[in-house]
């Protein structure tokens, strides 16, 4: 059971929801911090990092002895990452998306590939929470391959929570595609509503069921609630606007440790997700033994 916590707008509370939900589970849980440009769940979970693996994308290397300058590779490349000059094919690794197409079309077998590091996947544990996070190297622009690398570690026997990057572009899609449920965190403001609607469209286009968490309830207006009612979107949790929450967050504390009356709210949502996971595993065993959607495309 993979649940992505996403949002259109940044700063609505994705990490807050993901971390507190993870800490409220009754069994082992994985939390994948896929906001690889700014992973921050570790600030609240403070795990001991026990492994760190380099992740990268395969980029082409041209053997000048075998390249005859035919240009098949550069014709195929949509990113101008490989061009054919009078001197032969030349690679610009920083433009390469790692599709491997040039290698396949080269009639001379002149192109091989090597991994160009773009970041690391780090793992650590805090109690029942196994945290995995991607950390994109400074200056890199390609987040999706690293997000896929983080997701390739998703376990099949436990609940997996994904802290997704904000927005509705490629990184967000890479983080939520193939999940069983997306929880969209928003705030009851016009900006929050605008970006929630964009995120709902994106998630529906992917065919994934979604629910909403409204953060800082009590501020703003009623339009997010009206939108959810009109769209048939369940508001799964509302987090009140409370100064103690902001203060705890600013100190790097979790809500479940700092604000006692928040605990039952997250415990209730966590229990629902665990129940869904149990139902799902029963169904998938009945069906064909392994549920296809639990496997992450790499």
């Amino acid at each position: 059971m993979i649940v992505a916590i996403a949002s259109g707008k940044g700063g609505t509370g994705k990490t807050t929801v993901a971390v507190n939900l993870a800490l409220s589970m009754s069994a082992d849980v994985q939390l994948l911090d896929c906001d690889v440009e700014a992973p921050n769940a570790h600030l609240f979970l403070r795990p001991r990092i026990d492994s760190s693996d380099t992740a990268g994308i395969p980029v082409p290397i041209v053997d000048p002895e075998r390249c005859n300058g035919c240009g098949e590779c550069s014709q195929l490349c949509q990113y101008n990452a490989i061009v054919t000059l009078r001197s032969g094919a030349m690679v610009f690794p920083e433009l390469c998306h790692g599709c491997g197409g040039c290698i396949r079309v080269c009639p001379e077998g002149a192109i091989s590939e090597k991994l160009r590091p773009i970041g690391v996947v780090e793992q650590g544990r805090t109690g029942r929470v196994r945290l995995l996070q991607g950390r994109l190297n400074v200056g890199e622009s390609l987040a999706p391959p690293l997000i896929r690398a983080v997701r390739s570690h998703a376990a099949s026997g436990t609940v997996v929570l994904i802290d997704a990057p904000p927005g509705t572009s490629c990184p967000m899609i890479s983080a939520v595609r193939g999940c069983d449920l997306v929880i969209l965190v928003t705030e009851p403001t016009p900006f929050g509503l605008n970006d929630l609607a964009l995120a709902v469209e994106a998630v529906r286009a992917l065919g994934i069921p979604c629910g909403v968490v409204v953060n800082r309830t009590g501020t703003g207006d009623h339009r997010v609630h009206e939108y959810c009612a009109a769209q048939g979107l369940e508001i799964m949790l509302e987090i009140p606007d409370d100064r103690r929450i902001a203060e705890a967050y600013a100190r790097g504390l979790t809500l479940v440790e700092a604000v006692p009356e928040i605990r039952p709210l997250f415990a209730g949502l966590a229990a629902r997700i665990e129940a869904m996971a149990a139902m799902k595993s029963v169904r998938s065993v009945q069906k064909d033994g392994v549920h296809a959607s639990l496997r992450v495309p790499v």
């Binding site: 550069s74 949509q78 990113y79 101008n80 990452a81 061009v83 054919t84 000059l85 009078r86 610009f92 433009l95």
Partner: peptide
């Protein structure tokens, strides 16, 4: 071009 305009221009000139 979304990216690499200069690179592909060099290819054309070549």
């Amino acid at each position: 071009a979304a990216q690499g305009a200069g690179v592909q221009a060099a290819e054309v000139v070549s």
